[in-house]
């Protein structure tokens, strides 16, 4: 049996807004095994952002349990959460969130600066390897404003890979990209998944979810359905099938 990376049981998160209590998550339970490619879907207000924040150890649940790699996240303090994020999680954001006027190599090294165990030389080597993994080794010294959107997102993926996390969390990672570039990114993520990386992808786009093996649908803070995709589409095949010159 495969190792369970995420174990969530009856997870609740409530926000107090003045007199009102907003129940963003109302008792959610699911597990994620090593090597899974999971998409979390839902319309806005369904609680998927709240769930992502908790999964990413940016926020703590107000009820239920969340074990990440066997660690009970609810018991950790602010600094311990930082360490967990640094060592076990790789984030990919919709807006890439690269540091401006900082080259790709420096951007990718960033998480390792906060890990005192990594030497300067190891930091650079690992960043170069991560950039190779996203096929950007020729763009290492380019600044974000010299890269296309897709390339910037690949730098961000390299940054998420550099600390060798046990899970990669993507938040609408294709939201700012056109269809073709979205497929490129999905093809890259599928490839990483084949190499054994666990990926949790939050999106509201149905066709993006089709690239994952499992989909969890959220509505009003509860799981609507948790299904395995019978037919996982290959983003790489989709790309080759696409006409080279499209609508322009």
């Amino acid at each position: 049996m495969k190792k369970k990376i995420v174990q969530i049981d009856d997870l609740k998160r409530e926000f107090i807004m003045g007199d009102e209590t907003v129940r963003a998550l109302q008792g959610i339970s699911f597990d994620v095994e090593e090597g899974e490619f999971l998409t979390i879907m839902g319309s806005s207000g369904s609680g998927k952002t709240t769930l992502l924040n908790i999964l990413g150890c940016l926020d703590k649940p107000s009820g239920g349990t969340y074990f990440l790699d066997g660690i009970n996240v609810r018991l950790l303090n602010r600094n311990e959460l930082s360490v967990i994020r640094n060592k076990k999680i790789g984030f990919i954001f919709q807006a890439y969130n690269l540091l401006p006027r900082t080259n790709a190599l420096e951007n990718v090294q960033l998480p390792l600066y906060y890990n005192a165990a990594v030497s300067a030389r190891a930091r650079k080597e690992r960043a170069e390897k991560a950039l190779q993994a996203v096929k950007l080794e020729s763009r290492m010294y380019h600044y974000p404003n010299q890269l296309s959107g897709g390339q910037q997102q690949r730098v961000a993926i390299a940054r998420a890979l550099v600390n060798d996390p046990i899970v990669i969390l993507a938040d609408e990672a294709t939201g700012n990209l056109d269809t073709r570039t979205s497929y490129e990114i999905m093809a890259l993520l599928q490839e990483l998944n084949h190499q054994g990386k666990t990926i949790i992808f939050v999106t509201h786009e149905q066709d993006i979810a089709a690239f994952s093996r499992r989909t969890i649908m959220l509505r009003d803070g509860q799981i609507l359905k948790d299904v395995m995709n019978q037919q996982v589409r290959s983003a790489k095949d989709m790309l080759t099938a696409m006409p080279v010159t499209n609508e322009y």
Binding site: R78, N86, F91, L99, L110, Y114
Partner: peptide
């Protein structure tokens, strides 16, 4: 602010 958010999300502590 956004940079600070990013740094925190990839593991920077408040002290850092």
């Amino acid at each position: 602010t956004k940079e600070i958010g990013l740094r925190m999300s990839i593991g920077a502590m408040g002290r850092d």
